[in-house]
C-alpha cells in the first residue's frame, strides 16, 4: 500500500459525504418552504380600500386586511386633544400623536387591532385612558393607540395606508 492511498481514500469519503449533505439540504428546502404562505394567500393579501364616509365621529369600525383586524377610529376633538397634550417622553413607547396619523387627517386613527403583548384584540373606548383595553392581560392604550399601562411592550401598530381621497383610504 503506498502512502498516497489513504489521502485519496479520505478525499473520496469527504467528497461523497459533502455531496450527500448538499443533497439533503436541497431536499429539505421545499419541505420548509411549503409551510410559508402559499400564492393564493399572498394574492389575497393585496391592498384594500375602505370608504370612511359612513364612520361617525366617536365610532371605531373594524375591517380585515391580511386576516388581521384593522381599527379605523373617527376621533372626537376631545380624543385628539387628549392624544396630543401628553408629553411623549413620559410614555413607555415614546411617539407623538402626529407620528401615528396622516397630516391633515388628525381625526382618523388607523391601527392594527392586535395587542402587542400576546395578540388578543383590545376593546375600543375602554380602560382608564379612553382608548383601548385588552381584556386578556389588562394592557391599556390611549386615544392614539399608545401603550400606557400593562404588560404590552409597544404601541398598537399603524398599518401601511394612504388617503386616496378625503373619505377613502387604501390599506396595504
Amino acid at each position: 500500500m503506498s502512502a498516497a492511498e489513504p489521502t485519496r481514500r479520505d478525499f473520496l469519503y469527504i467528497a461523497t459525504g459533502t455531496v450527500g449533505a448538499v443533497g439533503a439540504a436541497a431536499v429539505a428546502w421545499p419541505m420548509i418552504s411549503q409551510m410559508n404562505p402559499d400564492a393564493s394567500t399572498i394574492a389575497a393579501g393585496a391592498p384594500i380600500e375602505v370608504d370612511l364616509g359612513p364612520v361617525a365621529e366617536g365610532q371605531v369600525i373594524k375591517v380585515f386586511w391580511r386576516s388581521k383586524p384593522i381599527f379605523i377610529g373617527h376621533r372626537s376633538k376631545k380624543e385628539i386633544e387628549e392624544a396630543q397634550k401628553i408629553d411623549p417622553k413620559t410614555l413607555p413607547d415614546p411617539q407623538p400623536d402626529s407620528a401615528r396619523v396622516k397630516p391633515g387627517h388628525d381625526q382618523w386613527l388607523v391601527l392594527i387591532g392586535i395587542c402587542t403583548h400576546l395578540g388578543c384584540i383590545p376593546l375600543a373606548h375602554q380602560g382608564e385612558y379612553d382608548g383601548f383595553f385588552c381584556p386578556c392581560h389588562g394592557s391599556q392604550y390611549d386615544t392614539s393607540g399608545r401603550i400606557r399601562r400593562g404588560p404590552a411592550p409597544a404601541n398598537l401598530a399603524v398599518p401601511p395606508y394612504e388617503f386616496v381621497s378625503d373619505t377613502k383610504i387604501r390599506i396595504g
Binding site: 421545499p30 418552504s33 411549503q34 410559508n36 400564492a39 393564493s40
Partner: peptide
C-alpha cells in the same frame, strides 16, 4: 390547490 399555489406543492 397543492399543485398550483402551495410552494413546491406540485413536487411534493
Amino acid at each position: 390547490h397543492i399543485m398550483r399555489d402551495v410552494n413546491y406543492g406540485w413536487l411534493l
